[in-house]
Design a protein around this nucleic acid. Structure first.
Ligand SMILES: [Mn+2]
Ligand SMILES: [Mn+2]
Ligand SMILES: [Zn+2]
Ligand SMILES: [Zn+2]
Lengths: 144, 144
DNA sequence: GGTATGTTTGTAATCATTACAATTATGTTT
DNA sequence: AAACATAATTGTAATGATTACAAACATACC
């Protein structure tokens, strides 16, 4: 995998996490494939490079990265956790047809809010669901 | 349970669902206790009135009600589905401390949108997470 | 009463995730 | 470089939410 390993090493070390081979590969995967993968998807992708890697390590690492705020979890599907390595906060769109999860950069007036109705806001997730642009197009073609 | 059974009967019938005792009780529970309960919570509440009720019936009914658009599902916790019987669309807040899920009536400019970036929008979920008003207060008291 | 259809129920299966304990790797100290 | 303490990895078992399935039951219609 062609990636900026020194950079990921620094990211892990500054958060007090040891830059192990497994963690570096998981981070590299998340940075390269921004598809909001499941733990399962990461596992199947990495087992080629690291045949001994365990699914538990995937979960351990992802949970450690979340605790440190390096990645974020997305529960848009309701059936499994998706993982996102992407700096600035943004919303997401789930296509009910093809299952793709797409980043939505929306000028949400609440993304900056730290307080709402007396409650302290620490996190905001915006989930849109529907039919994506591509599926709309191919659905139209199918009808012709 | 003191509820408007005739009303729920009408709701079910107009959607082509038979108004069985179980379904009426589930709807009555959702309407009375607006706590966004889990299937488990509904099951434990109803088993007093209907000792023979099955957890499968709870899930069957909830899924039927969702398919008909009578109730909505909320996946804010990431670990289990919560169910909401509440007419108008609104956002939600999850307290990371006490676990409560609170309705948030926010003037979201995207709640009315049917299209976004070429994608067709059918649903929008807004999930805020943090510490609720009550927990903030008791946390403050505890420090004194 | 008989039949078709939809609903409920109990049990078993599935799937994502976590718990746990043994093994191994890592960074630091000698 | 060897020894040590600590943290990470691994495999397996357990958990928990949800669904699959088939039998029993209810309801309405002929
Ligand atoms: Mn994203
Ligand atoms: Mn609500
Ligand atoms: Zn699509
Ligand atoms: Zn609270």
């Amino acid at each position: 995998m062609i990636t900026n390993i020194p950079h990921f090493k620094k990211v892990l070390l500054t958060q007090g996490l040891k830059p192990t081979y497994q963690r570096l590969e998981i981070l590299a995967y998340l940075e390269k494939y921004k598809i909001h993968p499941t733990a399962e998807m990461i596992y199947h992708a990495l087992i080629r490079d690291i045949p001994t890697i365990s699914k538990t390590t995937i979960y351990n690492t992802l949970n450690a990265l979340i605790r440190k705020g390096i990645i974020h979890e997305i529960t848009i599907t309701g059936t499994e956790t998706r993982y996102d390595y992407h700096g600035i906060p943004h919303h997401h769109f789930l296509c009910n047809q093809c299952g793709k999860i797409i980043d939505i950069d929306v000028e949400c007036p609440y993304l900056a809010k730290k307080e709402l109705g007396g409650h302290r806001i620490e996190e905001l997730q915006g989930y849109f669901k529907g039919i994506c642009k591509e599926c709309l197009r191919s659905g139209h073609k199918a009808k012709v």
